[in-house]
Nucleic acid binder design. Structure first.
Lengths: 183, 183
DNA sequence: GCGGTTTCGCTACGATTAGTATCGATACCG
DNA sequence: CGGTATCGATACTAATCGTAGCGAAACCGC
């Protein structure tokens, strides 16, 4: 039985939201590499050791920040074209959020040669969307993973090359292309 | 007039190709972060200082390696569907090359907050393909940049999430999707 | 109020890395 | 052989990740 009683000892201060916000803000200002854990802690107003007590590494912290930043997808499951458009526009907004694209690229970089981090990435970030999209769009796992690659990959590549989010005309092309692909 | 006479002094040893090969091999084995310039130099058999005499930073070295790794696109300019398929399959092979995807992610990460590196990236890596594709496919700059985002972004996202190249079935879907999009 | 338990802030530290400085040795030209 | 530019090697600075240790603080049950 899940003992819902509070465990003994000093409770954790509830600063996760502030840490996530400071993480994105710092990455946006300085880039992934120069966004040190020290600076993120200072921006939050807590000690660096407190961050390392909650997340095992900088990559895990940033992945948790991305999971927190990407929220649940607002899909109806009724009109596939509408859901495809809604999902893509949701991704566009999320990736355009300051710091998100830089955080993504940094985590991808760290995940090379760090299987634990890649596992966290695939499980905590991609899996929830895979499940929701399979259900709402009625597609196979392979198909949904392909769509996620196309949408998020396209948006991240644009941000990586130009530093600017995708313009509306290209977003509309992306939506139409995937609506046709999934029809 | 380009004076073709050799400048005085000891000539540069022609080790660029070996450095590029060692860069990709080291990044493939250790990941971008742990692929230190020291290790790349040692794998090449030269001194670290020699590398810094030719490329101003690790990011510039890796970008040059990517430019060297991606070669010229074999397009005919006659059959658009065939050219689209050829270009995508060329990208698939290039991104699947050991170390290339990791190098890409690392350069994107470094390019955040390093405008000089981003300029090198866009100019030396993306521009040649933009021009060739605009010519061969007869498309606008905006359209070609969109296609590059979709193709390379999709392939890199798959590599970043799974560490494995895209399987043939997904490649075929990608080709068909873009052939329809550009018809 | 008091002991027990856990988290917090702080400081210090080891290991690793990017990039620079320096200097003697080396390779090529005329 | 002299002039010139590169090479190899070593040493160095400045960051950065992640860890260890310790006293202080917060909360609980009594």
């Amino acid at each position: 039985m899940a003992s819902s009683t509070r465990p003994p000892g000093r409770p954790r201060s509830s600063v996760d939201a502030e840490v996530f916000a400071a993480t994105l803000r710092t990455i946006d200002e300085l880039g992934y590499t120069r966004a040190t854990v020290d600076r993120i802690a200072a921006a939050t107003g807590i000690a660096k050791t407190t961050i390392y007590r909650r997340w095992p590494s900088k990559g895990a912290l940033v992945t948790a920040t991305l999971v927190d930043s990407f929220g649940p997808l607002p899909l109806t499951g009724k009109d596939r074209d509408a859901d495809v458009a809604a999902a893509i526009r949701y991704g566009v907004r999320a990736v355009a959020e300051p710091g998100v694209a830089a955080a993504f690229a940094g985590v991808f970089t760290d995940a090379i040669g760090d299987p634990a981090l890649r596992e966290i990435l695939a499980t905590q970030l991609q899996d929830p969307y895979r499940k929701v999209l399979m259900e709402a769009l009625g597609l196979s796992e392979q198909r949904v993973l392909f769509v996620i690659d196309v949408v998020i990959g396209t948006l991240l590549h644009r941000m990586g090359m130009t530093g600017e989010p995708m313009v509306e005309a290209d977003v509309q092309d992306l939506i139409r292309m995937l609506q046709r692909e999934l029809r």
